[in-house]
């Protein structure tokens, strides 16, 4: 497989799946938290995983990157089975992960946070492009990571994985706790990334935010996917359906 072949996949152009999760079961210690999660992520698409608190959204992302020790089932990343791999081996296959709470290291400067994740592919966006996307970060490189505002931390968390060249981005609630104007910026950023050909798995509670970005919603309840809803034409009742799942 040539590396160039999948770094610039146009949205919807390729038929193979970027990420395929089959019958994923996972445990936190003794407690069984995922009960057969199954979904596919086609290249260049934005998939949103929604569900109530504790339904298993964050856990699904954590299981994909290997942070749950006990997992069964199948997680295939561009043709490579990852269920038996360690986190560092999994993300090297081309996954960029933005955790819940953003995971900015407080003892590292913005620059160090930015350069920490290892580069896994030739970059899709170079440094200048990344800082054009997140202009706030460019002149705060020497600041400690935690001196940034919540929005800036979210941008840094995204910027540092864009630097790795990973074509598949897992974003865990990127809008959580942010002001509406910042949420708008994050939405605009995700839209641009989608247009660039990135494949994105979004965990979101904010349906109105996710709606315009998402190609397909997967609803998770009690550790399994209970419904999948494609956006687009003729789906006028879809928002209502999603909201009823979330109880909002």
């Amino acid at each position: 497989m040539s590396e160039a072949a999948h770094t610039h996949t146009a949205p919807g152009a390729a038929s193979a799946t970027m990420l395929s999760v089959r019958d994923l079961n996972a445990w936190y210690g003794e407690s069984h938290v995922l009960h057969g999660v199954t979904f596919d992520v086609p290249p260049g698409k934005v998939i949103s995983i929604v569900g109530r608190n504790g339904a298993g959204k964050t856990t699904t992302l954590r299981a994909i990157v290997g942070l749950l020790k006990k997992r069964t089932g199948s997680i295939v990343v561009e043709g490579t089975e990852t269920i038996g791999l360690k986190p560092r081996q999994i993300t090297r296959l081309g996954i960029g992960y933005v955790p819940e709470e953003r995971g900015i290291f407080s003892s590292l400067s913005v620059r160090e946070n930015f350069t920490l994740p290892r580069v896994v592919r030739p970059p899709i966006m170079d440094r200048d492009e990344i800082f054009t996307l997140f202009p706030n970060l460019a002149h705060r490189l020497n600041a400690p990571g935690t001196k940034l505002s919540g929005g800036e931390q979210q941008m840094l968390a995204m910027a540092r994985i864009l630097r790795t060249g990973a074509p598949l981005l897992l974003l865990d609630e990127p809008t959580e706790g942010l002001a509406p104007v910042i949420i708008e910026q994050i939405g605009e950023t995700i839209r641009r990334l989608r247009d660039k050909g990135f494949t994105i798995v979004l965990v979101e509670q904010n349906i109105p935010f996710a709606w315009s970005l998402t190609d397909t919603f997967h609803v998770i309840e009690q550790g399994r996917v209970v419904d999948s809803i494609a956006t687009g034409h003729g789906q006028t009742d879809a928002i209502g359906r999603l909201k009823s799942y979330l109880g909002v």
Partner: peptide, 21 residues
């Protein structure tokens, strides 16, 4: 040193970032 400091704070995330913790 940055790896060390980062792993001191959050070893899980550092391993996700491709580093052999």
């Amino acid at each position: 040193g940055a790896y060390l400091r980062a792993a001191t704070e959050n070893p899980e995330l550092v391993s996700v970032f491709g580093i052999n913790v």
